[in-house]
Computed example of a mutant assay.
Amino acid sequence: MTDTSLAGRKIAILVASGFEEVQMTDAQKALIASGAQTRIVSRENGLVNGWHDNSWGHFFPIDADLTQTLAIDYDALLIPGGARSIAKLLDDPHAKRIAKAFLKGNQPVVAFGDAISLLAITEELAGRTVTGEDSTKEAAEKAGANWSEEDIVVDGMLVTAKGDAQIGAALDALMANVTEYAATLTDEAA
Score class of each variant (00 low, 15 high):
79 I>H: 01
79 I>P: 00
79 I>T: 07
80 P>T: 13
80 P>C: 08
81 G>Q: 03
81 G>T: 00
81 G>W: 13
82 G>N: 08
82 G>E: 10
82 G>V: 01
82 G>A: 11
82 G>F: 08
83 A>H: 11
84 R>Y: 12
84 R>G: 10
84 R>T: 01
84 R>N: 13
85 S>I: 09
86 I>P: 01
86 I>K: 00
86 I>T: 03
86 I>M: 00
87 A>N: 15
87 A>G: 04
87 A>H: 09
88 K>P: 02
88 K>M: 09
89 L>I: 13
89 L>G: 06
90 L>H: 12
91 D>M: 14
91 D>N: 14
91 D>K: 15
93 P>M: 13
94 H>I: 01
94 H>L: 04
94 H>F: 14
95 A>M: 06
95 A>I: 05
96 K>L: 12
97 R>P: 02
97 R>D: 10
97 R>Y: 10
98 I>Q: 11
98 I>G: 07
98 I>D: 11
99 A>K: 08
99 A>V: 02
99 A>Y: 06
100 K>L: 07
101 A>W: 10
102 F>P: 11
102 F>K: 12
103 L>Y: 10
103 L>N: 07
103 L>W: 05
103 L>K: 11
104 K>L: 13
104 K>P: 01
104 K>F: 04
105 G>A: 15
106 N>I: 01
106 N>L: 10
106 N>K: 15
106 N>V: 05
107 Q>E: 12
108 P>C: 13
111 A>S: 07
112 F>R: 05
113 G>H: 11
113 G>M: 02
114 D>T: 01
114 D>M: 04
115 A>K: 07
115 A>D: 02
115 A>Q: 04
115 A>L: 07
116 I>C: 02
116 I>D: 00
117 S>P: 00
117 S>H: 14
118 L>W: 02
118 L>E: 02
118 L>K: 05
119 L>R: 08
119 L>T: 03
119 L>V: 08
120 A>F: 06
122 T>V: 10
122 T>L: 14
122 T>Y: 12
122 T>P: 06
123 E>A: 15
124 E>W: 03
124 E>I: 08
125 L>S: 03
125 L>Y: 12
126 A>S: 14
126 A>M: 04
126 A>K: 15
127 G>I: 09
127 G>Q: 03
127 G>M: 09
127 G>F: 13
127 G>S: 09
127 G>H: 13
128 R>V: 05
129 T>H: 07
129 T>A: 14
129 T>L: 05
129 T>V: 14
130 V>N: 03
130 V>H: 08
130 V>F: 03
131 T>H: 06
131 T>F: 05
132 G>Y: 08
133 E>W: 12
135 S>L: 08
135 S>G: 07
135 S>M: 09
136 T>L: 04
137 K>H: 03
137 K>G: 00
138 E>W: 04
138 E>T: 15
139 A>T: 03
139 A>C: 03
140 A>T: 00
140 A>C: 06
141 E>I: 13
141 E>W: 09
141 E>K: 13
141 E>Y: 07
142 K>F: 11
142 K>H: 12
